[in-house]
């Protein structure tokens, strides 16, 4: 069998979303997928602890969300598209979220782009 992911090799600064990561992030991902509905988003905004308890998030996972620690949410198994959903609750868009993962300010990040107006 050709292993498509080359076991033992890794891509720098990359956390491939495989079944191991998906298992680790199941609570985070279930919560985020539940946010695909306006009523659920309102419920989450009004009582985040209650919703995080309902999805059985660990104390560490809750802290990552409340701290808006997007990079470590990814490392904890949050799929990036689900992390984007959670960030949107805090009015954080994809590019600021990305800048934070890079350890840059949003403005610094935009300077690295070809056409920074295309947001």
């Amino acid at each position: 069998m050709v292993d498509q992911l080359k076991p033992g090799k890794s891509i720098k600064d990359t956390y491939v979303f495989d079944l191991k990561m998906s298992e680790r992030g199941m609570r985070i991902n279930r919560l985020a997928e539940w946010l695909n509905g306006a009523e659920n988003r309102e419920a989450f905004k009004s009582d985040m602890d209650a919703v995080m308890d309902r999805f059985e998030l660990t104390g560490e996972e809750k802290k990552l969300i409340l701290d808006n620690d997007w990079l470590n949410l990814v490392k904890a198994g949050g799929n990036i598209y689900n992390v984007v959903r959670i960030a949107a609750i805090f009015d954080v868009g994809l590019y600021p979220l990305g800048a934070q993962q890079l350890g840059m300010s949003y403005e610094e990040f935009l300077e690295t782009r070809n056409e920074k107006g295309a947001t």
Partner: peptide
Amino acid sequence: HQLHGERFG
């Protein structure tokens, strides 16, 4: 494109 991790962008 890469959207996750320190390789974002």
